[in-house]
């Protein structure tokens, strides 16, 4: 099966947040707005953007960026959720295998049952996406993030349906399909934008982290959309998983071997010293004294 992807065309997005709402609904991530008598407890943050951040119950949110855009103030919208990297740092550092790469779809899938709540994925994610919930002091947590509608029991891909966010998008800013096809579409769209004079138009996600499975058509540079300009697989993840861990095994193994070797030689030597003539013979476990 060909790898799948979502294409988000920022130029078509009206920030209606239908995707954000249906994501919650389909994935049963209800969220209660804290209420007080006669209103809600939420404070005005000076932006239509809401909620403030991703959370274990908000896997997708639309960002509202007020930025200078071709010499005038503009409001640029951007979709924020798991990018489903090909070279996913979270998969690399997850000690339990709870996060893994789904070879069929190419996405970063998640087996929540075996998550240990360590939060390494959150520390190493170049896009700061995974969120943890639980008791911070005890350390009893569970991670959550967008799984591209592959939750057990709520798996839309399995039944050949597009993800919930895509399904609900009224302007077709979100489309789902084979990654190769979408890459071609995105290229065309960006070329068209450039032809129209949006010289900074960017196709984001083609090469980043080995290829994202959420592709972006932007009509300005990624930073204007709150996206990291040149996201990198963290070198610390490589240093840790590919250097220090194998080194640990080598050091541990060699130490034990060395000790066994020492024991054989030293015992022999000691026996020779203490029982001249009987050296090495009889093989009795005649250790010190």
């Amino acid at each position: 099966m060909a790898e799948k992807a979502i294409l988000y065309d920022a130029t078509r997005c009206t920030a209606c947040r239908g995707c954000q709402a249906l994501c919650k609904e389909w994935n049963e991530n209800d969220e209660v707005i804290p209420a007080v008598q006669g209103g809600v407890k939420e404070r005005n943050r000076g932006s239509y953007e809401n909620p403030k951040d991703l959370s274990t119950r908000t896997w997708l949110k639309i960002g509202f960026n007020e930025v200078e855009h071709y010499d005038k103030l503009d409001w640029l919208f951007s979709r924020r959720a798991c990018m489903h990297c090909t070279d996913a740092a979270c998969v690399k550092v997850c000690p339990t295998g709870a996060l893994y790469r789904d070879e069929a779809y190419g996405i970063v899938a998640y087996n929540k049952d075996i998550c240990s709540g360590c939060g390494y994925c959150a520390d190493f994610c170049p896009f700061d996406v995974p969120r943890l919930d639980g008791n911070r002091i005890l350390g009893k947590n569970k991670m959550d993030k967008c799984v591209l509608c592959t939750q057990p029991g709520l798996n839309r891909l399995e039944i050949k349906q597009e993800p919930a966010c895509v399904k609900t998008c009224p302007t077709k800013a979100l489309v789902f399909g084979d990654r190769d096809t979408l890459v071609a579409t995105a290229r065309q769209k960006v070329a068209a934008l450039k032809a129209k004079g949006f010289t900074n138009a960017t196709f984001y996600g083609e090469k980043e982290l080995g290829g994202l499975h959420v592709l972006y058509v932007l009509n300005d540079t990624p930073d204007k959309y709150g996206l990291p300009v040149d996201p990198k697989f963290p070198s610390t993840a490589t240093a840790w998983q590919d250097i220090i861990q194998p080194l640990g095994w080598t050091v541990g193994g060699l130490t034990l071997l060395g000790l066994a070797f020492n024991f054989i030689i030293a015992r022999e030597a000691k026996m020779t010293k203490e029982l001249p003539g009987k050296a090495g013979k009889g093989g009795k476990k005649h250790v010190a004294e």
Binding site: T96, G117, L138, G139
Partner: peptide
Amino acid sequence: LGFLAQDSWTRIVHR
């Protein structure tokens, strides 16, 4: 051995 850490309990003991 990661599966043993499931549901955080080894990490609680670690703490």
